[in-house]
Design a protein around this nucleic acid. Sequence first.
DNA 1: ATAGCGGCCTGAAGGC
DNA 2: TGCCTTCAGGCCGCTA
Length: 299
Amino acid sequence: MPELPEVETVREGLERLLKGERIDDIAVYHPRAVQRSEGDVAGLAVFGGRTVEAVVRRGKFLWFEMEGIALNFHLGMSGQLLVSEPGAPAPDHPHLRARIMFKDGSVLRFLDQRTFGYLQRSSLTEVSDGRPAGQGTESPFIPVPVAHIARDVLDPWVEVGDIARRTRRRRTEIKRAMLDQTLASGMGNIYCDEALYRAKINPRRKTNGLSYQRIEALWHHSKDVLREALEQGGTTFDALYVNVNGASGYFSRSLQAYGQGGKPCGRCGATMTRIQFMNRSSTFCPICQPFSGGSSSRL
DNA sequence: ATAGCGGCCTGAAGGC
DNA sequence: TGCCTTCAGGCCGCTA
């Protein structure tokens, strides 16, 4: 499951290996790998001869700036981007969805078991605040399909106070708000559970029933969780193999809430509760993260 | 406009 | 042993 830290690791690898290179050709092996792409599969031909000017990320979206247009990627649930340097093999694979061949002989392969991921040709549009559109660029231009996605919590231009104020205006459950990519992007189920655990907030608490201070603290915890995961996960990938690996070190060593249902809480020893929530699971400590009032209303 | 929910997809894991 | 069901979850698009 590539989450924001994994996508940023991939971005850094692609930037290091492919920035400045020119695309020769793109081959597509599965129709679902190209979704909502301008000109459909045939439209990808315009990338031939164009240079990768920047490799940019906002939330879990990743794109190449290519001389006025974007080649935009989303890895979905199971996507991988693998770079083979010139002369190295780039073999077929049962889940191979596309190959991007570069003039220098490099090959970028897109693999995706569950085909939730895709690549697409997109026009660029200017972001309203005029600031750099994402990690990896100074340009304020963003692919049209990404324009509605908010800045992510690791974005240097984002202000936690601003996210907190907009969160508090919502009238919904706090975890729903955290997963809403138009409020702040990049928070998946795993990192939401971890941040809520650290902030001692029940996932079903209402946004308007929490103080500004607690919501602000929650977003600071969110930022910390993502930064720590990035620091740990970013060291496990070598230069030749830009990988996305759900079993990164962070997952096995550091998770305190996600996947811990039935196990004792690391703080108080109570049994961690797992509930169904938004067609997925949500795990929390019933003592540290109570649903109603009590100690949870204080910091 | 906004909130909330269903659908997309396949391999692993568990039950019988 | 083997078949069937359940689960994982980000994002889009539909509905109210």
